[in-house]
Amino acid sequence: MNAKIHFNVDPVVRKNLDFSLDKIGRHWFGNDPFKSRFFDSVSLLFPDGERYFIESVRQFRDLIRDEKLNQEVGDFIRQEAQHSIAHSKMNNVLESHGLPVTQITAEANEIFQWMSNNFSPRFNLALTAAFEHLTALMAESFFAEKAAFAEADPFVRALLAWHSIEEMEHRDVAFDVMKTVGDVPESMRKVALVVAVLHMFGIGLIRTNELLRYDGYSKVERLKLFSSGLPWFFGRKGILPKMNKQFFSWFKQDFHPSQHPVIAQYDVWVDVLAQTQDPIQAGQAFWEAGRE
């Protein structure tokens, strides 16, 4: 694939995309309970997490004097709002499968509210920038190679492909707000990524265990599922460690998200959506354009 290399792309707000999520099965990732429930646990965090990101950046919007950055912040807010809506629809499907969605999302809301109320605005902004760095890297790790999501349900894969595209588009917005008007010390910026990782994966794995328990798996069965599933994510040859170089670049003094190229098949998704107006076809083409 002769892909055009982008190091920076502007956010584009896309509304009312239909991913036909009502068609997905209970264990939609290759009938693998662990992989399915891990991604479900992250989806359950997204609606309140996106609202937290929006509010954390909005706290500083009145200080922004750069017109382009101000426009990007507006697009970032609108994109994150659409992500919240889409993942709420996904969560409604999970609830129809008998999962305790209302309970878990209420707990997620309490956690994000606690963070907003107890952390300083500067640290909440730094955390948001760190989460955006993390999610952009996760997007690439999931879609850069076809094998990673080969067994995923095409409708959920399309949802995550769209979300990944927009993470690439706005990955530097919160960071630029932080560097321009946030007055965030370097030590705080670096600590924020550690906290973001512990939050996302710590809570994600706790929720994965809870969802598997609701699926009826015993403690011993859940332990076996974790033992076989965790290496796929975090093992030496897992999908996340492939992004270690980009991940650790956050700790360099001169780091900026745009130092890393946007995922190679970005234009494929954008072009197919423009041609078909169908995010499912765009998601399929995006996945198929990944490396073998």
Rank of each mutant, 00 (worst) to 15 (best):
M1D: 09
A3C: 07
H6C: 04
H6F: 13
F7I: 02
F7C: 04
N8D: 12
V9G: 02
F19I: 03
F19A: 02
S20T: 03
I24D: 04
G25R: 14
H27V: 11
H27Q: 09
N31Q: 13
F34M: 06
S36D: 11
S41E: 05
F46C: 01
G49W: 01
Y52K: 03
F53R: 10
S56W: 06
V57Y: 09
R58S: 10
F60L: 00
R61W: 13
I64A: 06
D66R: 12
K68E: 14
L69N: 09
Q71N: 07
V73A: 14
I77K: 03
A81F: 02
S84L: 08
M90S: 09
N91T: 03
E95Q: 11
P100F: 09
T102R: 15
Q103C: 12
Q103K: 11
Q103Y: 11
T105I: 13
A106Y: 09
Q113S: 08
M115Y: 10
S116R: 13
N117V: 05
A126Q: 06
L127D: 04
L127N: 04
T128C: 09
A129D: 03
A130F: 12
E132M: 09
E132H: 06
F142T: 12
F143K: 05
A147S: 11
A147R: 06
A148V: 10
P154N: 01
A158Y: 05
L159A: 02
L159V: 05
L160G: 06
L160V: 08
A161C: 02
H163R: 02
H163T: 00
I165M: 15
E167V: 00
E167F: 01
E167A: 01
H170I: 00
R171Q: 14
V177S: 07
K179I: 07
V181M: 09
G182K: 06
G182H: 08
D183R: 12
D183I: 05
M188F: 10
M188Y: 14
A192F: 10
L193H: 03
A196R: 01
L198K: 15
H199S: 12
T208Y: 09
L211N: 03
D215N: 12
K219N: 13
K224S: 15
L225Y: 04
F226R: 04
G229A: 03
G229Y: 00
L230I: 13
L230F: 13
W232D: 05
G235V: 14
G235R: 04
K237C: 00
G238L: 03
L240M: 10
K245S: 13
F248L: 15
F251D: 04
P257I: 02
P261T: 07
P261Q: 12
Q265W: 03
D271P: 05
V272G: 02
V272W: 01
V272S: 01
A274Y: 10
P279W: 03
I280S: 00
Q284I: 13
Q284A: 15
A285K: 04
A289T: 04
E292P: 13
